[in-house]
């Protein structure tokens, strides 16, 4: 039986949403709103913080508190909110442009600080909103509107970066894997400390156009086929590894978060 869930977190009159067919942002939004519902969060206790770009438009769809900031700085805005009011559930939604291109420094430091935010990054391998320019996650050799003859640069592995920078929870998934996507978002929301959920979802309209992935169905097949477990990935030959990516939970630990440690600082300050 079909069940409509997550509805109370969605503003009325906003559907159909703005994202292109084949883009995973809408699927991520559905998973996020359902996660809120399953965790029984109240709208007033949630703050959705966004940056700029396709993913950055998501705040306009929700009935929770929201702060739509500037390109790449969403994590820094969210840090202020969470540091001052630790009881709030602060969710940061970014694209790969926000997260590791213009905003890479905030990303590293938010993870290092291990502040209790849940960051969801939609990695679509390019700047979708501005016309498909190369981003920090465009792989070497790939074609975009600013790398017409192939990208001379290499891409950043967002999840690996979050792990080494100090995040407590890191998972990578795709919009094809809808159930796991929601599950990881829920785990991220419940995890104290910095959580990152990376959703690989190539931009069909721009990146797809240049790299033979514009058909939504082909795209889903590609995501299903290329996203593999770390065990399967390890069995791949070196030449094949570039074509695949690991999905699943990549990091899960319980190092005390910023606010917990700040409370310890307070006690020390008061006794000094």
């Amino acid at each position: 039986m079909l069940q409509e869930t997550g509805r109370k977190y969605l503003r009325s009159g906003v559907l159909p949403h703005m994202w292109c067919s084949g883009c995973g942002i809408g699927i991520m939004m559905g998973a996020l709103l359902r996660s809120f519902e399953e965790l029984e969060y109240k709208n007033k206790d949630i703050v959705v913080v966004t940056g700029i770009g396709c993913t950055g438009k998501l705040d306009d769809y929700v009935t929770t508190n929201a702060l739509h900031g500037t390109h790449g700085r969403a994590l820094a805005f969210a840090t202020g909110i969470k540091a001052f009011k630790p009881d709030l559930k602060v969710v940061v939604l970014m694209g790969d442009g926000d997260c590791v291109t213009i905003g890479g420094n905030h990303f590293i430091h938010a993870a290092r600080r291990n502040i209790d935010l849940t960051a969801i990054v939609v990695n679509n391998f390019n700047f979708g909103m501005t016309g498909g320019q190369a981003s920090g996650t465009t792989s070497g050799g790939k074609i975009t509107s600013t790398t017409l003859y192939g990208n001379p640069e290499n891409d950043i592995d967002i999840s690996a970066l979050a792990c080494v920078a100090g995040a407590n929870y890191v998972a990578r998934i795709t919009p094809y894997h809808g159930w796991e996507l929601k599950q990881y978002i829920k785990e991220g929301l419940m995890k104290k400390g910095f959580s990152l959920i990376e959703m690989i979802s190539p931009c069909p309209t721009n990146y797809g156009k240049y790299n033979k992935m514009e058909n939504p169905l082909q795209m889903l097949r590609w995501l299903k086929e290329k996203g593999v477990s770390s065990e399967d990935y390890a069995r791949l030959g070196e030449s094949e590894k570039d074509e695949y990516f690991v999905i699943g939970k990549l990091c899960d630990r319980d190092i005390p978060d910023f606010n917990t440690r700040y409370e310890e600082i307070r006690v020390r300050a008061l006794s000094s």
Partner: peptide, 13 residues
Amino acid sequence: IGSIAAVVGAALA
């Protein structure tokens, strides 16, 4: 950049 962003976030909180 992050400093003023955090200030804005905290002010809204």
